[in-house]
């Protein structure tokens, strides 16, 4: 594991508790800050002025039913969707209008839903594509080693075509590919989609490890509230394109708001 990431991880683990408590002190410089974001498809508004912050080394979950706008929010942050209005700042610089690939170079990597991979390429080739932004032979080798360390199963399958992997392995491959770019902020879109509970638990365990050991901040969209809140520091409940409530995992766990937004009563009342 690389020295630099390890050092950062050390501090992050001890400071995580404080982070939440002293949010106002540290809040001046969050890693990602989304302010009053409006996004639409055609004439239809999907996001109506969303505000959101992710702290350095933090884990934030986006909660909400299908169609609430979680994916759209992630797509807007990573540059796949173009916002109508609002600002997105990554490490204190505006990133609105930047191409996804250039954001990857800056350390913001989006793992989209449905695990798109290069089906005809081998597992290792898939990972090598992820290392496009990494320069230098040794840096790439280190990154590959790191990816295999988190996902040993991929090392066994490294010569196989990606299409032959199981669903869980494919999800691991997509996350590992993102890891190849040495991200500082990972956007994960429904990593649990269509996977068996045991596999989901494995994947989330690895995500937590990546967060702790590499100091990678995580912003994830996850409809499964239980799992999401088990690893997140902070949750945003999103309903028809607006943030309905924000709170720590503990606060949200018993919240009436969360239950309502999943049952969809909120959607009918708007």
């Amino acid at each position: 594991m690389s020295e630099k990431a390890g050092g950062e991880a050390g501090t992050s683990v001890c400071s995580r508790g404080e982070d939440r408590a002293t949010a106002s002190a540290d809040g001046a410089h969050p890693m990602l800050r989304v302010r009053d974001l409006w996004v639409s498809y055609g004439k239809l508004r999907v996001l109506h002025g969303v505000n959101l912050e992710v702290k350095r080394h933090g884990v934030v979950a986006l909660l909400g039913a299908n169609g609430a706008g979680k994916s759209t929010l992630l797509r807007a942050i990573s540059g796949l969707a173009r916002p109508d209005a609002g600002s997105i700042e990554f490490e204190d610089e505006s990133i609105v209008g930047q191409r996804p690939s250039s954001l990857v170079h800056r350390g913001l990597v989006h793992v989209p839903e449905r695990r798109p991979l290069f089906a005809d390429l081998t597992v290792e080739e898939n990972l090598m594509v992820g290392a496009y932004s990494t320069r230098g032979r040794s840096a790439i080798a280190t990154a590959l080693e790191r990816a295999f360390e988190y996902f040993p199963i991929l090392k066994e399958r490294s010569r196989q075509r990606a299409a032959t992997l199981s669903g869980g392995e494919q999800q691991m491959l997509v996350i590992a590919r993102a890891l190849m770019a040495s991200p500082r902020l990972l956007l994960l879109d429904e990593p649990s989609l269509g996977l068996a509970p045991l596999v989901v638990r494995d994947i989330y365990r690895i995500i937590t490890r990546i967060n702790r050991e590499q100091g990678v901040a995580v912003l994830m969209a996850e409809p499964n509230v239980g799992i999401a809140l088990s690893i997140a520091d902070l949750g945003y409940v999103i309903e028809t394109g607006t943030v309905m409530s924000v709170g720590s995992a503990a606060e949200l766990r018993g919240s009436e708001q969360v239950r309502r937004s999943y049952l969809g009563q909120g959607a009918a009342s708007t």
């Binding site: 498809y41 055609g42 004439k43 239809l44 999907v46 299908n66 169609g67 759209t72 797509r75 449905r114």
Partner: peptide, 26 residues
């Protein structure tokens, strides 16, 4: 966009699109 969907009304024949491209939202 949504309006053209509403206008076509009975023409609507269903779409199969990957999630997250706004089908639900639309």
């Amino acid at each position: 966009d949504a309006l053209s969907w509403a206008e076509v009304g009975e023409w609507l024949h269903g779409r199969i699109v990957p999630g997250g491209v706004g089908a639900d939202e639309q």
